[in-house]
Structure formats: structure tokens, C-alpha cells
């Protein structure tokens, strides 16, 4: 396993990462795929909300906020 692979919510703001794997199951997985979160998608971490969670990401031109519970189920490779 590559050391560069981390859950999405851990990447620093302003950095981009490439989706490697989605570990969520069922409907949550479905919703993530619908947002365009498929393998090899580039995601940029934009900003944290005032209390640090959720975090807003740019996903395929749209800005989507995800709670850390969800973002932790998306494994990415930091670019």
C-alpha cells in the first residue's frame, strides 16, 4: 500500500488529491458516485467550516461539503 494514500478529510486545505478507492457501502456509496466521486477523480479540499467539520471540496466543478465520517470513506492520493 502506498503511503501517500490517505482518507480525504485529512488532506490539507488548498491541496488536491486523486480518488483511489471508495470504502463506503450501500446508499452512501451510491450518493458519492452520483456526485462524480469515482476512481481517478481529482478533488480539491477548499475550506473547513468554522468548527473544522464539515469540509468543502471541489468535485467536478461543484462545491460539496462532506462530514468527516463520509470523507474518511474516500481514500485519496495526495497530489
Amino acid at each position: 500500500m502506498n503511503n501517500n494514500i490517505v482518507p480525504l478529510h485529512l488532506i490539507p486545505c488548498g491541496k488536491s488529491a486523486k480518488v483511489k478507492e471508495i470504502t463506503a457501502k450501500g446508499n452512501i456509496r451510491r450518493r458519492m458516485l452520483d456526485l462524480g466521486l469515482i476512481v481517478d477523480t481529482i478533488v480539491e479540499s477548499l475550506r473547513k467550516s468554522p468548527s473544522g467539520d464539515p469540509i468543502a471540496y471541489e468535485i467536478r466543478g461543484a462545491v460539496i461539503a462532506l462530514r468527516s465520517e463520509e470523507a474518511s470513506k474516500i481514500l485519496v492520493e495526495l497530489l
Binding site: N27, R31, M32, P54, A56, V63, I64, A65, L66, E70
Partner: peptide, 11 residues
Amino acid sequence: IPSSFALELPP
């Protein structure tokens, strides 16, 4: 427990 949450921040 709270369910999943994805919120779009539209332009």
C-alpha cells in the same frame, strides 16, 4: 447516529 451528509454550496 447522524446519517450521511453532502451539501452543495452553489455559486
